[in-house]
Amino acid sequence: MTALPDAPPAVAPPRPPERSARPRSRGPRLVRRALAYGFLLAVALLVLVPFGWMVSSSLKRNNQVLTVPIEWIPQEFRWSNFIEIWDRIPMATYLGNSVFLSVAITLLQLLTGSFAAYGFAKVRFPGRDALFLAYIATIAVPWQAYMVPQYIMMQRAELTNTYWSIILLQAFGAFGVFLMRQYYMSIPDELCEAARIDGLTEYGIYRRLMLPLSKPALASLALLTFVNTWNDYMGPFIYLTSNELWTIQLGLRSFVGQYDAEYAMIMTGAVLSVLPIVILFLIGQRYFIRGIATSGLK
């Protein structure tokens, strides 16, 4: 197999920006904007219907949640659910554990992922692309297939029932490497060459050039890793036994008994557990800003 694709943008070289205002009439523009808003709003509402059900359920009694047909508006609004849940399970502990795990794993993933990605994208050495392909292909193996061998290894290393097991398991995935590599690919090689001529080492290029240039990718990787860790249930379930180590997802499942489930409590907890992600998402969007890639040229 020959070299894997580098994809420098195959487009005409940029022209100097022209900010001169083109003549445009304001009328149709306003109409178009209104239409766009109307359309987006309609789509957004449709998309949010299941979340609406979650919120509605979080305000009901347990035996009013799974009704047929669905009752969209609770018979009585039990806001007390949002207070009760803190007494029923140690929510604060669980949330704290989830935050700790998600932050630790996200940081490690960002750091090692972007670092390795630089090796895969900008350093050329034999065997690089084959190794990369093997990396990616392993994502395809469902975790359930190697869960038991992995558990036995962890048990042997006496890491089960500690945070180490989850962190070591999830922080080094190939996903981040792949994502960052693709992003680096779209940063022109000429930039790196110029930096090399200026006397920067490869590590210097990574730190001084690539990292700042790849903020949007780092932001999206951070967000997605955080969300996936935050929502992961099976990993913590298998590895964390002591109650004081449990994450929020395990906490929510503890409302499911052998023969019954407290659906309202589960939905209350689910609504609460979505909040940190929403905050993160709103913050993370600050980094989705165009033009960083070229601003580093000079």
């Binding site: 750091l111 090692t112 992922g113 670092f115 390795a116 630089y118 090796g119 895969f120 350093v123 050329r124 050495f125 034999p126 690089r128 190794l131 990396y135 392993t138 190697y146 061998p149 992995q150 290894m153 070591l168 398991l169 922080a171 080094f172 995935g173 190939a174 981040g176 490497v177 490869e202 990574y206």
Partner: peptide
């Protein structure tokens, strides 16, 4: 190239190999 390349890849690869690849 090999040395530099691997030095970038190694931190992630070690964790990946030990805890995912071997199992």
């Amino acid at each position: 190239g090999i040395l530099i390349g691997w030095s970038f890849i190694l931190p992630n690869f070690l964790g990946f190999a030990l805890f995912t690849l071997i199992p």
